[in-house]
Design a protein around this nucleic acid. Structure first.
Lengths: 228, 228
DNA sequence: TTACATAATTGACATATATCAATACAATCA
DNA sequence: TGATTGTATTGATATATGTCAATTATGTAA
């Protein structure tokens, strides 16, 4: 539905198909070598500046990716959910992590050790191409995101964030995210976000229940986002 | 010098080593199939939304990459110069161009046709890895850029832009860029940029001569950028 | 349950920044 | 050379947004 109203592709990363339908030997290699792990809500998967030990497959739960700026203020530039790969960029660029990844909910991960992952892309062309395609696609998404930050108002960015968050949570329009995280995602202060949400509520675009946002009228939000 | 004052790497793309020291058969393949072309200052190399026909190697000159937003306002997210590859992302993601590329100066390009480039990455692992590394690195740079847009003031971003532009032009501190382009790069209005430049001049950080910026005191700019 | 901590909201206010309008300057061309 | 066009600068003003402070609501542990 929302896809007809909104060009979602240019606005979302979606790297959840990199590991599907791999040849059997790959799948069994992963099964054999993967390290399963669980983290609680709020815990950090890896920190900015540290050295990658592998890539993570998020089995259940949701995480935020952010870098830390002035006064320790978080800037969330991406949310990931089930079946997405996390932490592959820095492994591929052979650098330390450029950002921190922390859990928004309780999470389960499979850690694929560095050498396993690297040997996989060394031996499996299909996977290498998927990776390349995925990362190249993200380039366009980032282009869009920086433009939106540079040119759009807080009100417009907030509307856009709700549209994206509805898709991300995919739960009857219910969005569960703290005001702090939400404001870091939009790139504004908590207070400005709260006021904008209040406006959208008044206008009948959303409902607010115990800090949960429920979308009511996406078309109004699309109009408010002023994206085209 | 500036490298000691400033962590340049996290702030610059630098994809100028992808094609150097390739095996002889690659180099001769490129030589054989490349199409040389020249464009005048102001001309467009390719437009947002069109289909890629190959990748371009910028031999001489400088270009801007931008996407067009509200009211046709440009958002410049990257400047490229001699020896950089342009237009490879969309070829790899198999999408239409996510942005426009236009010449800031007279330019010379080598166009490597799509099928030649794709066969190169198919057959040369080294190049594939360089590409992957380069694009993954850009991910971290973009992370930084969005954070700077979200959290830093126009004054801070302007200072940062001058520091980056000095490196980019690499010409005794002389920066030649129109106010319009410069403001699109910083993500602000022309007037706000002009006023900020005026301030930096007053403070002795830069000089302004016939619309050219000459850096005088980088340390002052680093301080003004407030980047750490 | 109560007490405490954390999160969300609201209000008042200061200010950074965009916008509109006018002027000055520079570049190009006939 | 002057005329014309585009670019840069300055001024005045409105407003969106951030900040600080106070209040209310919510969640959590004893």
């Amino acid at each position: 539905m929302i896809n007809t109203l909104f060009p979602c592709k240019r606005y979302s990363f979606a790297n959840d198909t990199i590991l599907v339908d791999l040849p059997n030997d790959m799948t069994s290699l992963i099964e054999e070598r993967k390290i399963s792990m669980k983290l609680k809500k709020g815990q950090v998967l890896f920190y900015e500046g540290t050295i990658p030990t592998g890539v993570y497959v998020l089995k259940t739960g949701k995480v935020k990716k952010y870098s830390t700026g002035l006064n320790g203020k978080e800037h969330i530039f991406y949310l990931a959910k089930e079946n997405e790969i996390v932490g592959h960029h820095c492994l591929l660029s052979k650098e330390t992590y450029a950002h921190t990844t922390a859990c928004l909910t309780d999470c389960e991960f499979d850690l694929i050790p560095k050498e396993v992952f690297l040997s996989m892309i060394e031996n499996d062309h299909e996977m290498l191409h998927r990776l390349l395609k995925s990362i190249s696609h993200e380039f366009g998404v980032f282009t869009n995101n920086t433009r939106i930050l540079a040119q759009h108002s807080v009100r417009e960015r907030t509307a856009l964030s709700i549209i994206k968050l509805e898709r991300f949570f995919d739960n009857d329009g219910c969005i569960k995210l703290s005001r702090k995280d939400h404001s870091s995602l939009v790139g504004t202060s908590i207070e400005s976000l709260v006021r904008t949400l209040h406006d959208f509520k008044e206008e009948g675009a959303i409902e607010l229940r115990e800090s949960i946002i429920i979308t009511k009228d996406i078309e109004k939000l699309v109009k408010a986002s002023n994206f085209m």
